[in-house]
Write a protein that binds this DNA or RNA. Structure first.
Lengths: 241, 241
DNA sequence: TCAAGTAAGGGTCATTACAACCCTAAGTCC
DNA sequence: GGACTTAGGGTTGTAATGACCCTTACTTGA
């Protein structure tokens, strides 16, 4: 008959971790097509010593969850995401051998240029999101879910610009959608769709030096953004069958 | 450079709680219209002593998160939900005075008849979801978010039957949608929509004793359900702007 | 200097989803 | 038997979407 907010868990050995699935796009030199990649971190202790895992770490004492996700991501990979949203809390009793771990997982997007700059070494590497090796814990499941959320959300939301810089052409924006959704989109229809939603604002600049008609540069319409995540805003989710 | 899955939080005083927002429909005697209600539990200790709060409790040592949500819900309210899904993990550092609490919140639906049977007393009461008093912690925010998720999901998903019994008429199903979405729906269009999706299967039974043409009873098409929650199934979410 | 090549950017048209609306069917009630 | 009520089926107009076409404006190569 009592709300349990302030009771402690009976078993104090439940550890709380925060992890982040962060995506960037990479262009394949051969085909010219972009695909979705993510950085993973090699574990250097048991369990799953030597396997690849999501970047993450423990929750700081006075730290919000999203802050912890950003901080641990930065500490392990050096990346600063342009978009960050809670994905799911994974806490099945059998998801980890040894002591019980509940992971609150975030998913994030980062610009390609930013991704290039980030530290990569023996213990941090980028992998193609739909062709991963066996990961530590239930992290394959987590990545699959995050990838599905990304694809789903790309269809109704305005997150694509988090993969791009300040300004971009509609073709670049279309290529982001094509990379995530995995199929080509009609350029004319895409243009009409984007300009119909006021997701984007035309600048008066154009890209010169291409071998064709110079495309106009666009900027994201930040007057709609406001807050973009979680329970504070209703701008961020929509459907699934 | 290390995945933090098995490290403990620096501050062991972070408590992990599981709470549930559970909705049922109630028909207003006067207007005949149904609205969304939820049960709350009165707190009997500090902080927020005497205020109403969501049912919940601590996570058991070897217990999955959803199991803990169902268990604590049953212990405090006696309700057994027909639908249960994770909502969000609330963990802002300032969401509770005193020791740090991270709450993993679930949302659930229960049949009206089941809701009637459940224990109600001085410390458990039902409230209309749109018109709540000031609740303990950030629970007003949580309920608002859950309500928004319910309304959103009702538009693309097949969860409405969780408010109803084994069999039901299309008018009953339509009234559920109307109650949640808060506006009347065209009966003919609704019928076509539902029969077009194979969400529902006609039985050969009809309801007799009404003062009009006897309506056919339907049953939900369980061959599509399979799993319905979380990362294990892709059947459960969709859009938001 | 000019033709070929390429993507930008604007348009049309057929198909489809959906909302508004109408009409008949099949019971009960008086 | 006639009025009343909801079930349940149909039609029509409109908006959204995909497939496709055409012109524009630049670069490149002959």
């Amino acid at each position: 008959m009592v709300s349990g907010e302030t009771r402690k868990a009976d078993d104090a050995s439940v550890a709380l971790a925060v992890s982040t699935v962060i995506f960037a796009l990479r262009r394949d030199e051969a085909s010219g097509l972009a695909t979705v990649w993510l950085p993973l971190v090699r574990r250097i202790r048991e369990p799953f010593d030597g396997l690849w895992a999501l970047p993450g770490g423990p929750l700081g004492a006075a730290e919000d969850l999203a802050t912890a996700a950003g901080r641990t991501l930065g500490e392990t990979t050096g990346l600063i995401p342009g978009y960050l949203e809670q994905l799911y809390a994974f806490g099945n009793a059998d998801r980890s051998p040894g002591p019980r771990v509940v992971s609150i997982v975030y998913w994030a997007l980062v610009q390609s240029e930013e991704a290039e700059r980030a530290s990569v070494g023996e213990n941090v590497q980028w992998f193609p999101a739909d062709d991963l090796p066996a990961l530590a814990f239930d992290h394959n499941l987590i990545v699959d879910y995050a990838l599905w959320r990304l694809r789903n959300k790309m269809e109704y939301s305005r997150i694509a610009h988090a993969f791009l810089g300040e300004t971009f052409t509609l073709t670049q924006l279309r290529e982001v959608h094509e990379a995530v959704r995995g199929r080509p989109l009609d350029p004319a229809n895409f243009r009409r769709f984007i300009e119909g939603s006021d997701a984007v604002v035309a600048t008066d600049q154009r890209v010169t030096g291409t071998r064709h008609r110079p495309p106009r540069l666009y900027r994201y319409n930040t007057s709609i953004d406001l807050a973009d995540q979680g329970p504070l805003s209703r701008l961020n989710e929509r459907r699934e069958p």
